[in-house]
Design a protein around this nucleic acid. Structure first.
Length: 560
RNA sequence: GUCCCCAUCGUCUAGCCUGGCCCAGGACACCGGCCUUUCACGCCGGCGACAGGGGUUCAAAUCCCCUUGGGGACGCCA
């Protein structure tokens, strides 16, 4: 059972790996040219109905995919959020399934956000989840020269051109178009400049950006998305987009492609919000003469109001770290996350790591966005109930030996840890965990609801006091006397304590439940819990007797 | 506004491509029962959906069209 799978031990260098030799960015061979299978002639309007978006299904007995290389390219924004984590997970699963490689590439071109701390946040999130990578982290800024060189090449080969239009002009035109309720696309002013005139102006030092030249012939970019099926975008719907800023720095659309080409990425698995970029990126691949990867766009994760989840709007609840800090098991989070947009096709929902890798496939990713169903004001569920249910499931079914290490960390953090729990009291520790875990939902429940098992300074819950103590004030006298009886027991076994308590109840003429529940309240502080006699057994004679003798104090605490 | 994508229980989903086995299956949540000293676990049962309208067909959740609703993209952000 992988609920506590080993933390990745991969030594991740925190420094840019710029030293990595980056030869053959793209195969100098295959110029895309007119044989490009991704270009189709415009079929014109009307006529046949739109082709059904049927997705290819995995064929039986297909050969293993060779050289699967995927990447996870987060831009550091402070921490790993669950949407990104899910993207990373899908990539990771796909790589592992096909014996491929996962590349971690930090897109750190936004210097503002890319602090050491926010990069660390991403990496720690991945490590905690158990998503390990095979290459990287690479840093996008380290490859800036490559990006610029690619842009130059595109200009030299006529796939891009310098544009001298100023931002102000463009903004004005865009504004005007919008005011006229039309849609705006770059009008191609500089596209029509004579090459030598453009070159001259560049030589003169005129500020300019570099724009990609979208084919102006009829036709469209077509690609087969693994999730959405055949997608088509008419050239006419694309504008000549900027690939290099006027300060000479390359833009995402370009850098991303150049990096993917260099890293020999075979499958681009990313959020559906990248779908609109895909046709433009395919154009860049083509212009670069690079092989085009397979694309798989995954549906987005929305909040209950159907808005895209984001750090700004939703805060910590969408941070992977939040789940770590709130007692989630990493694998439970992964298992929950994978279900947001994917299913195995049968009724299974809980998987071991190996089972999930085996079951995962791009073809079974759903097309519809999913809702991350958390409710800030829900007193019972601090996050999506299903996430909690998955976590609780692993908590009570994982090997108790694996659980022990995780609970140890929680107890240590609260100062409740005793080294004996790992030594001569190890058996006791495991037995106790096993006894109490079936009603817990997170690791935090062990030091909280479970505190009385590991410490003597536990509080008595209000509800437990009201229901099981306050209603029977006589318990203040009964329980210390019961303590005397229990103290006299030669063998402090569940059978013996049960017999003693029932006998005492009978003598008192009260229902056994009154004593049983009262004892539970005093001895554990809780309203509910495991069978009392097992609890007493685990707590041990001395503790039980001592706690019961102090019952009057418990009443006094309350009446004061 | 323009382009694109999506649409099954409250939520996550199966079924849709290859129409009949679906008056729609599973999970979570909720409700009830069993177990029981409590609560949980476990087991049993219940509530609960094909967005609407047109077609096509002997037959439609499944195919087609329209409407509605939701989402995404439209940056010298990534």
């Amino acid at each position: 059972m992988p609920a506590n799978w080993p933390r990745t031990s991969r030594p991740t260098s925190r420094k840019p790996t710029a030293t990595r030799t980056s030869t053959r960015p793209w195969p100098a061979s295959a110029r895309a040219g007119s044989l490009d299978p991704y270009t189709v002639p415009d079929r014109g309007r009307g006529g046949e109905p739109r082709p059904r978006r049927a997705r290819p299904r995995p064929q039986e007995g297909r050969p293993p995919m060779s050289d699967v290389r995927v990447r996870f390219p987060p831009s550091p924004t402070g921490y790993l959020h669950i949407g990104s984590a899910r993207t990373a997970l899908y990539n990771w699963l796909f790589a592992r399934k096909h014996g491929g490689k996962l590349v971690l590439r930090i897109e750190d071109t936004d210097a503002e956000r890319s602090t050491e701390a926010s990069i660390r946040g991403i990496i720690e999130g991945l490590e905690w989840l158990g998503i390990d990578w095979d290459e990287g982290p690479y840093f996008q800024t380290a490859f800036r020269d490559e990006h610029v060189a690619a842009a130059r090449r595109l200009v030299a080969e006529g796939h891009a051109y310098p544009c001298f239009c100023t931002k102000e002009e463009l903004d004005a035109r865009r504004e005007a178009a919008r005011a006229a309720k039309g849609d705006y696309r770059y009008d191609g002013t500089c596209r029509r400049l004579a090459p030598d005139e453009a070159a001259a102006r560049v030589a003169r030092g005129e500020p300019h950006v570099i724009r990609f030249r979208v084919p102006d012939e009829a036709g469209s970019v077509v690609f087969e998305d693994k999730v959405y099926g055949r997608l088509e975008k008419a050239y006419a719907d694309l504008e000549d987009f900027v690939i290099v800023r006027s300060d000479g720095s390359p833009l995402y659309l370009l850098s991303n492609v150049v990096d993917d080409v260099r890293d020999r990425i075979s499958h681009v698995i990313r959020g559906q919000d990248g779908l609109a970029n895909t046709p433009r990126q395919i154009l860049i691949y083509r212009a670069l003469g690079a092989p085009i990867p397979v694309f798989a766009h995954m549906p987005l994760t929305l909040d209950p109001q159907k808005a895209k989840i984001s750090k700004r709007k939703h805060g910590e609840i969408v941070a992977v770290q939040f789940y770590r800090d709130n007692g989630f098991l990493p694998w439970a989070l992964c298992n929950f996350l994978v279900l947001l947009g994917w299913s195995p096709g049968d009724d299974r929902e809980l998987f071991t790591r190996e089972e999930l890798i085996q079951a995962f496939s791009l073809e079974r990713i759903n097309r519809a966005n999913s809702v991350f169903n958390y409710n800030k004001n829900d007193p019972k569920f601090f996050t999506d109930p299903k996430a909690l249910a998955v976590n609780a499931h692993y908590l009570r079914t994982m090997p108790v030996e694996d659980l022990a290490g995780l609970v140890e960390a929680e107890l240590r953090a609260e100062g409740l840890w005793d080294d004996a729990y790992a030594g001569e009291r190890r058996d006791w520790f495991l037995r106790t965990l096993d006894l109490i875990r079936s009603r817990f939902h997170t690791l935090k429940d062990f030091p909280r609801a479970g505190r009385a098992y590991f410490a003597d300074d536990y509080a008595i819950e209000d509800r437990a006091y009201k229901k099981n103590l306050a209603k029977h004030p006589d318990l203040a006298g009964w329980l210390p006397r019961l303590a005397d009886r229990l103290a006299g027991l030669a063998a402090f076994t569940p059978e013996a304590t049960e017999a003693a308590i029932r006998a005492y109840a009978e003598g008192l003429g009260v229902k056994p439940g009154v004593l049983i529940n009262g004892v539970r309240a005093v001895v554990t502080g809780q309203l509910a819990g495991p069978g009392l006699f097992e609890v007493l057994d685990v707590l041990g004679q001395d503790r039980v007797v001592d706690r019961l003798r102090r019952t009057p104090e418990r009443f006094a605490e309350r009446s004061g």
